[in-house]
Simulated assay, not measured.
Amino acid sequence: MASLGVRAQQPGAGENPVRMGKAAVAGPRRAALGELTNFNVAAVNTKRGASKSKPPAALKTKQPEAQPPQLEVQAVPEVPEHPQQLDVSMKEESELCQAFSEVLLTVEDVDQQDSDLPQHCSHYVKDIYKYLHELEQQQAVRPHYMQGYEITGRMRALLVDWLVQVHSRFQLLPETLYLTVAVLDRFLQVQPVSRRKLQLAGVTAMLVACKFEEMYAPESDVERHTLAKYLMELTLLDYDMVHLRPSEIAAAALCLSQLLLEGLPWSPTQQHYSTYDEAHLRPIMQRIAKNVVQINDGKTKFTAVKTKYSSSKLMKIALIPQLISPIIRSMAAAVDQTHRD
């Protein structure tokens, strides 16, 4: 028991007596302090070996703690009293982009309702149509370009009549048919072909046109639009109209269509966007009327277009009574009178 009491009074192997603790705290022997300060630990240890009684001078002076890097604070620009001044340039740019705004135009902005639909390109439609008009001038078809050719205008009409049937058989888009005839005429006026290869040239033109066919049809009045398409397709057979621009024929067909169905004149808005007035379109309308009278009177055997537009799918638009009205006949008679003069 006595031995157990002696052992209880002695410090354990893992315990430190009070006097040992004081001596340990007094000595600069903790490595952790050296890691936290900026002084050279190796130099201090060398000096301590030379003079143990005198602490090194480095320990007398408290080293400054390492300062964290300072963040650069940028000056905040002053906010003007009127914030809308910042948007002046953006507003000016936006106003310039509105090519068809009511401020710049004196006619109705027909593209305003499409401003939220980027696929309609309403902000660039002015430049697009300007470019298309330039292409019409650059790629125009010469009148009577087949003079001296082995093929004639009648052979061309026979080919186009057959292409209309092929177009209907494969249910192609209307734009494909017009582009087919356009490619055909532009090819033939620079490269004459023989009778034997004329049909091959027509099929090839349709194949090329199919590469560019449109998949989005414009929205308009159904009856007026269908009648205009019928009147335009009749012009594909007319050799005397090959030199006219496609935009001229389209505008004249629409003008005649709305005149026959609704008695409406060519409006200032239509004149602005088509770039043609009614006086310019009237001779073309008269020529279209003559084509209608010839096919209704049985003076031509090329009837594929009329047969196509006599179907219920196309509203039997070729059979409407307006196409045998006095308006059509008077316009057709004006063409013959012009030729006699």
Rank of each mutant, 00 (worst) to 15 (best):
A2K: 09
L4S: 04
G5Q: 13
G5C: 11
V6R: 10
A8G: 12
Q10R: 07
A13D: 04
E15L: 03
N16L: 13
R19Y: 14
A24S: 12
A24D: 13
R30L: 13
G34C: 02
L36S: 14
N38F: 11
N38C: 11
N40T: 06
N40L: 12
N40Q: 13
A42R: 01
V44A: 14
V44P: 08
K47L: 11
K47F: 06
R48M: 15
R48G: 09
G49S: 14
P55M: 09
P56L: 08
A57V: 10
A58E: 13
K60F: 08
T61Q: 10
T61A: 13
P68M: 06
P68Y: 05
P69N: 14
P77V: 11
L86P: 00
S89K: 15
E93L: 15
E93H: 15
L96A: 04
C97H: 15
A99Q: 10
S101V: 03
V103K: 14
L105A: 02
E108G: 01
D111L: 07
S115P: 00
S115K: 06
Q119S: 07
C121P: 09
V125L: 08
K126A: 11
L135H: 05
V141E: 00
R142A: 14
M146A: 05
G148N: 00
Y149H: 02
E150S: 03
I151W: 01
M155N: 05
A157L: 07
V160T: 05
V166L: 04
H167C: 10
H167W: 11
H167D: 06
F170I: 02
L172K: 09
E175K: 12
T180E: 00
V181D: 00
A182L: 07
L188H: 01
V190P: 01
S194D: 15
S194R: 13
R195C: 09
R196G: 06
K197M: 12
T204D: 01
L207M: 05
A209K: 06
A209T: 00
C210A: 00
F212G: 08
A217C: 14
L227R: 08
K229H: 05
K229Y: 02
L231E: 04
L234M: 04
L236N: 01
L237F: 01
D238A: 05
M241K: 00
V242S: 00
L244M: 04
S247A: 14
A251S: 09
L264E: 07
L264R: 09
L264F: 07
P268G: 13
P268I: 12
H272W: 14
S274C: 13
E278S: 15
H280W: 02
L281F: 07
R287N: 08
R287F: 04
K301V: 05
K301L: 03
A304M: 03
V305Q: 04
Y309W: 02
S310L: 03
S310C: 09
K313L: 14
K313F: 13
K313A: 15
M315H: 04
K316C: 09
A318W: 03
L319D: 15
Q322E: 12
I327W: 11
M331I: 00
A332H: 08
D336I: 15
D336F: 11
Q337H: 13
H339M: 12
D341A: 06
